[in-house]
Write a protein that binds this DNA or RNA. Structure first.
Lengths: 248, 248
DNA sequence: GCCGGTTTGTTCCCGCGTTCACAAACTCCT
DNA sequence: AGGAGTTTGTGAACGCGGGAACAAACCGGC
């Protein structure tokens, strides 16, 4: 560890822990909520509660960005909100392309939360000619072969894959070929990408299966070790002993 | 040759690490892919590659379930697939209710991957009378007030929230009230639930913002420290700073 | 039956992330 | 001005997860 004054600035430049990065958007949203309530100042305790995390974690997370609070007082909501937005990089909008305008892609294209959260849908593409030409909002669905043009024209840096699984890798390769280095993948498929490209996946059935595991666990544990005072209850509803709650 | 070890069973009862649970569905899907290719046996190396993880991690994950492989040979694909499915709890289908049939809820209702992956949509609910009565697949969208009936009738154990953010907490409370203890939340809202209830959230803008952070980071680092397209571990990030005001 | 080759299951170690606890810093009141 | 009360920022302890390395177990050939 290259010792050196770990000033706030150098900290931020050195990179923020991944777990913290994943929470910053949550804090940002919570702060936006406070702004809308005309709340000018908040403590770490209050913000942590709004974000669903513990206050020590919140303070440590924020400390990676710098010292933006005032001891004995708390945080200036508007100021902190701007700092987090700047750190994430959503003070201006990022142009996004969505590939695959099926049910899911359609829903994403209609999603109103994009513009308010730092993104702008720049293009909607689909390989199926039957889907091309449709207008969603003020955009028209274009052919996938327009990809390279549009990425260049709009300086698109983020691609969203909402195609069926069998097409996902090919689409991904094309996206990477255009120079896109950030991909959000909704297709249930493991994507292979070169170093330097970030892929995040959102997978409905994985999430459900994780829930199913815990649900099954609650049921069998409840059956094996009947918890105290749980009034009868139908067979399938698992008596809840101290399961882990995600939010607190 | 099946390993019917009581030790394996006791292991499983003791609980599987959360990180492993999150990967089991990925292994399950990879194995299903191998089954479709008529591959009867595979090594940890092959399966790990198909799942996009490292083989040591895969073996360790599987070891939490029991000893289902054969040294010097590998894993029986079909057998291992069944064991993982059983461990997750998706050997039978879980009935699921989807609340909020907007664009997203509609897309989810249409999603074909449910039945093949251990779930069955048992009910579609929406509070808006304008949306009620529509048929999606072979289900009709019903009023939210039917919730309690349907949960009881179909023994629903998992709820999916696809409503706008302002309604999410209220819907969540109603779901919890019926005894549902597993919730998948698509609304951009932090949900408050009692202990024993599991909530998982899927949030498009959070995922995009995480990508945006890294994208911004690549851009500023690239500008400050050109070349080195290759490697350069995350730890060795360059010490360049870009002038940052810390004080207000 | 034994030996070389192969692959699993496990142990050990390290680094990251979470949490506790406390000093530093600020406000307000007297 | 000074002290009491708050709240931040951080140092330190601790537990979990990841990865390398290795012993145990299995197969096939001779």
């Amino acid at each position: 560890m290259p010792g050196r004054e770990p000033t706030a600035a150098s900290r931020a430049e050195r990179g923020i822990p991944e777990a913290t990065v994943a929470r910053l958007p949550v804090y940002l949203r919570a702060l936006t909520g406070l702004v809308e309530l005309d709340i000018a100042t908040c403590s770490s305790e209050e913000l942590a509660h709004a974000a669903g995390v513990n206050s020590a974690k919140l303070r440590k997370d924020l400390s990676y960005l710098g010292s933006y609070g005032t001891r004995g007082v708390g945080y200036d909501v508007e100021y902190l909100r701007y700092q987090i937005a700047r750190e994430i990089g959503v003070t201006q909008d990022w142009p996004v392309v969505i590939v695959g305008i099926g049910n899911l892609g359609h829903a994403l294209a209609d999603y109103s939360g994009f513009s308010s959260r730092g993104f702008r849908i720049a293009a909607l593409l689909d390989a199926d000619p039957a889907r091309q030409g449709e207008r969603i909002g003020d955009l028209e669905v274009l052919g996938f072969d327009r990809l390279e043009d549009l990425v260049t024209e709009f300086a698109i840096a983020i691609g969203v894959i909402a195609t069926p699984a069998p097409s996902a890798q090919a689409v991904c390769d094309r996206l990477v070929g255009t120079g896109i280095t950030s991909i959000l993948n909704f297709a249930p498929e493991v994507l292979n990408v070169p170093d330097g490209v970030d892929v995040r996946k959102v997978d409905l059935s994985i999430e459900l299966q994780i829930l199913a595991y815990h649900e099954q666990r609650k049921a069998t544990l409840g059956a094996a070790a009947p918890a105290a005072l749980d009034g009868a209850g139908p067979e399938l509803s698992g008596p809840q002993l101290s399961g882990r709650a995600v939010n607190r």
